[in-house]
Design a protein around this nucleic acid. Structure first.
Lengths: 245, 245
DNA sequence: TAAGATGGCTACTCGCGAGTATGGTGGATG
DNA sequence: CATCCACCATACTCGCGAGTAGCCATCTTA
C-alpha cells in the first residue's frame, strides 16, 4: 500500500527496439510523469493560497484537466500534501547524507546542512514541508511527518553537539540552538517568493553568515571588510556541495 | 464600523453609588468581559487545532454556549482571527514603546524587544499573531495585518541599523538579519505549548543569547563558564523588562 | 475487427460549517 | 403591571468542496 510504484526495475537501454514491452514501459513512465506534474501543481497552489484555500478543482484547472483526473493519480487531498512534504524533506535528508562523508569541523558540516536546508525551504516544496500541519492529516500520516521532522531536528542537534565538542562551535544548548536555526530557516517559506531579488541559495548563505557571527561585534579577525565580499564563503562552498558551478 | 467599543470614558470611581447608570455601566463592562472571553477561547482553539479546523461551534462549546451567542459578540470568524492577531501584536508594539525611552546601546534595546517578542509569540495569542494568513482574510483586514507586520519588521531593522552604527552590533545586512531573528522567534509558535519545561521568557532569553554569541567560538571574554549559569541574564532581567530596567 | 485496458469527462452525492430567522426568558424601566 | 431590551437557544438555509458513479474515447493486443 505504501509503495504504489509498481514499475519494474526499468533499465534505460532497450535491447530489442521492437520489444512488445516498450510501449507498456513507456506508458508507465508517462503515467509517473503526469503524477509528478499533479504533485508539483499541488505544491504550487498550496504555496500561493494555502492548503485549505486550495480546492482540488483549482489544482485540476491549473493542469487543464478536471477533478476526477486528479483523483486518478492520487487517492485524496491529504495524500497530495503528504507527497509534497516528503518531496521537500528528501532534499534535506540528502544534505545530511552528503555532509556525513566530509571530514571537516562540525560547524562547517552544520553550515553545509543549513545551506541546503534553506534552499529546500525556498524551493517549491518548501511551503509544504514547513507547513504541513499535523492537524490537517490523519493520525497515520501525522505520525510519519512527525517522525521525519524529528529525524531532521535530531540531526541538527547532533551536528551542533559535535561542533561544540571539537571546539568549532561556541558552547550552547543544542536543543534551543537547533530550534532557533531551523526556525529562522523555516520562516523563509512565509515570506520568500520566486522572482525575488535573491535566490534561495543566496538567502541561505546570508543566514548562515549571520548565525556564525552573532550580533555582538567580533574581534578584528573578521572585520567590516568582510561585508564587502560576503560571497567569499559561498564561492568556496559551491565546489564542495553540489559538484558544480 | 471599525470601532465598536461604544462605552463611555468609563471612570473607575462611582460618584453616586445608587446612580441609575450604575447597572447600565455594569452591563457594558460585563459585556466587554464576555466579549474578551470569546476572543480568548477562539485564540485557544486556533492554537490547538488551527484556524481552518476550528468551527465556531467548537468555540461556542468551549464556552458552554451556542453559536448564535458567539455571533452576538463578533460579526464573523474572520474578525475573530483579526482580533486575536491585534491582541498579540499589541504586546510587541508596547515593547517598542518601552524600549524607545532607554538610553542604552542599540543591541541592548534590540535584545529587549526580542525578549518581549519571544514572550508574545509564546503567549496564547502568539499563534494567531504569527500565523494569521493574508489568504484567509478579506483584502481590507489583510491590508491591516500586513501594515502592522511591516511596522514591526521596520522597527527591528531600525534597531539593528542603530546598533551597527553605535558599534554594538556586528556589521550585517539589516533586512536579512531582521528576517532571521524574527523568523526564529516566530517559529516558537509552532512548537511551544504551555506546560513545557521552559516558560516563554526563558526561551526568549535563550534565543537572545544564541543570537548574540553566534555559532563561531568567541574569544575568552565570554567563556564556557557562561553555560553553567545561563539563567543569570534571565533573573537580572525580570526586574528590568516589565516595570522598566 | 473484437476485446480489453487505460485515461479522461459529465454529472452527480453528501456532509460540514458559516451564517441567520425567529422566538423565548429575565431583568430593568415607566 | 406592561413594556422593552439584552441575551441566548432552537432550528433552520445554503454554498462549497471532497469524493464518486458511470459513461465515452483511444490505444493495445490478439
Amino acid at each position: 500500500m505504501a509503495n504504489r510504484r509498481t514499475s519494474p526495475p526499468a533499465v534505460k537501454q532497450s535491447p530489442s527496439p521492437a520489444s512488445p514491452w516498450r510501449a507498456s514501459r513507456e506508458r508507465v513512465r508517462e503515467r509517473e510523469v503526469k503524477r509528478e506534474a499533479v504533485i508539483r501543481a499541488a505544491a504550487h497552489a498550496f504555496n500561493r493560497k494555502g492548503y485549505h484555500n486550495t480546492s482540488l478543482d483549482d489544482i485540476a484547472a491549473a493542469l487543464d484537466v478536471t477533478k476526477p483526473t486528479v483523483y486518478y493519480y492520487v487517492t485524496n487531498k491529504e495524500q497530495l500534501l503528504f507527497e509534497c512534504f516528503v518531496a521537500g524533506v528528501e532534499q534535506i535528508r540528502a544534505a545530511f547524507r552528503e555532509v556525513k562523508q566530509l571530514k571537516v569541523t562540525g560547524r562547517e558540516r552544520l553550515n553545509g546542512v543549513l545551506r541546503h536546508y534553506g534552499e529546500a525551504v525556498a524551493s517549491e516544496f518548501g511551503w509544504c514541508m514547513v507547513r504541513a500541519e499535523e492537524q490537517d492529516l490523519s493520525p497515520a500520516m501525522s505520525g510519519h511527518i512527525k517522525a521525519l521532522k524529528s529525524e531532521i531536528d535530531q540531526g541538527i542537534r547532533r551536528l551542533i553537539r559535535e561542533g561544540v565538542q571539537d571546539g568549532s562551535i561556541h558552547p550552547c544548548d543544542p536543543k534551543m540552538t537547533a530550534f532557533a536555526l531551523a526556525g529562522a530557516l523555516n520562516w523563509i517559506a512565509h515570506w520568500y517568493r520566486e522572482n525575488q531579488s535573491m535566490t534561495g541559495a543566496e538567502i541561505a548563505d546570508a543566514f548562515v553568515t549571520i548565525f556564525e557571527n552573532g550580533l555582538r561585534p567580533r574581534a578584528a579577525t573578521v572585520s567590516a571588510a568582510r561585508r564587502a565580499t560576503p560571497r567569499r564563503a559561498a564561492t568556496s562552498r559551491q565546489a564542495a556541495t553540489r559538484a558544480g558551478r
